[in-house]
Amino acid sequence: MNRVKEKIMELVFLFTAVISIVAVALICIFLFANGYPAIHKIGLWEFLSGKTWRPTNQIFGIFPMIIGSLYVTGGALVIGVPVGILMAVFLSRFCPKKLYRMLKPIVDLLAGIPSIVYGFFGLVVIVPFVREHMKGDGNSILTASVLLGIMILPTVIGVSESAIRAVEQSYYEGALALGATHERSVFTVVVPAAKSGIMAAVVLGVGRAIGETMAVIMVAGNQARVPHSIFQGVRTLTANIVMEMGYAADLHRETLIATGVVLFVFILMINLSFSLLKRRGGEK
């Protein structure tokens, strides 16, 4: 009786473990199956490289949105990566223990703030600032980049901090013994040794930035065209889905799902490179 119970429960646990495989399979199947008809009808190349998005005329090219996602993500990296890595260095090698106990919750809080609150903050603070002190109407690539740069900070900080902490102390001590200052030892010996971990942090940041939806919608302007300056509005792949899914039908709806498929493929590539980088970091 007991042995039967043990066996049954083992199977139950196995079943729960398999759920994540089932979930990934279902997500892939449903996205690709629902996105494929649109891509098939329009043609993959026309869909990806078409510069015009005009659903009312049945013209569906998502090139502006791909460019938009890339621009905004790139801008976020310009702000988030240097600040994030420097902050990680500060937390792991400069900060006294007492201060660390105060700073760590701050970084955690930054990670915990919902994206809708970030978006609202961007809407009421950053957008008016850009409009009044710079150029354009404030809903722009620049605004979205600044906001996303802040949003990916905790991700970049968290992963690079643990990468820097994982570097053996002897590296640092060796550099000090050779006469380098604390800063020089950290930046020329410890940080390079944590390179693949820090790269993984950047890749994870890219993933967060490219997949961010609500915050971007509220500050990016969402015009579906190829922008010519960073003060112009832009629409990302994620925004395209949320903006139009509410009223889209037929082919239009299918193209939005296909937009999701394109985003999903991007994310899968990013995930793959993240785990490759992490594995390489782990081997050392």
Binding site: I21, G211, G260
Partner: peptide, 28 residues
């Protein structure tokens, strides 16, 4: 081998942005 697959899929799940979950939820 199953454990490896489970780990990979769990990692994949944690990397998927919420809008993709939203799309999937809508479709499924």
């Amino acid at each position: 081998k199953l454990v490896g697959v489970i780990r990979v899929t769990a990692e994949t799940l944690s990397g998927i942005p919420s809008i993709i979950y939203g799309l999937f939820g809508m479709l499924f």
